[in-house]
């Protein structure tokens, strides 16, 4: 819960709303009862963030201790983690994934690219940050963010 939530991050594009979203996320985290199912979408990442997410669920950081689990289908997921700037080709699959999730649902944008396109801003085939395509609830800054930051953000959602 410390600085991992991008609600406190002034660089965030939709900063005004994000604070309340973070609060909502925290409230919802309590409602999720300490059990969060996560579906991950790579919307155009360089895969740096994927390596860090892999570490977050590895034996060292072990996010599953905190009630967070990766699942194989958005139908099973409470939380969607998204990495990378959203490319033109991945915008529709990302939207479809978000639509396929049961309610309530939260979106965690992992990494600087997901927040504001990072080094790829203005690049060929880049549509925009994740927030332009689906509403984002939690942001994790960093290029790439450390596993500890990812775990902290997910703990904020799971509440444990």
């Amino acid at each position: 819960m410390d600085g991992g939530l991008s609600g406190q991050d002034p660089a965030c594009g939709a900063g005004g709303r994000a604070g309340s979203r973070a609060a909502a996320a925290a409230a919802l985290g309590a409602g999720l009862g300490g059990s969060v199912q996560v579906r991950h979408v790579d919307a155009g990442s360089c895969n740096g963030c994927e390596i860090e997410i892999g570490q977050a669920f590895g034996p060292v950081y072990d996010a599953e201790r905190h009630g967070v689990r990766l699942v194989a289908s958005p139908r099973h997921a409470d939380v969607l983690t998204v990495t990378g700037p959203v490319t033109v080709n991945m915008a529709q699959p990302l939207r479809a994934t978000y639509e396929a999730m049961p309610r309530p649902r939260l979106v965690v944008a992992v990494g600087d690219c997901a927040r504001d396109c990072g080094v790829f801003a203005g690049g060929h085939g880049v549509l925009g940050p994740v927030g332009d395509v689906v509403p984002v609830d939690v942001r994790v800054p960093g290029c790439p963010p450390e596993p500890a930051a990812i775990v902290a953000a997910l703990r904020g959602v799971s509440g444990r």
Binding site: S73, P74, R75, Q92, P93, L94, T97, E99, A100, P102
Partner: peptide
């Protein structure tokens, strides 16, 4: 809730 069949977003 009526939702389209999940097609892997593809």
């Amino acid at each position: 809730r009526r939702a389209p069949a999940w097609d892997c977003g593809d």
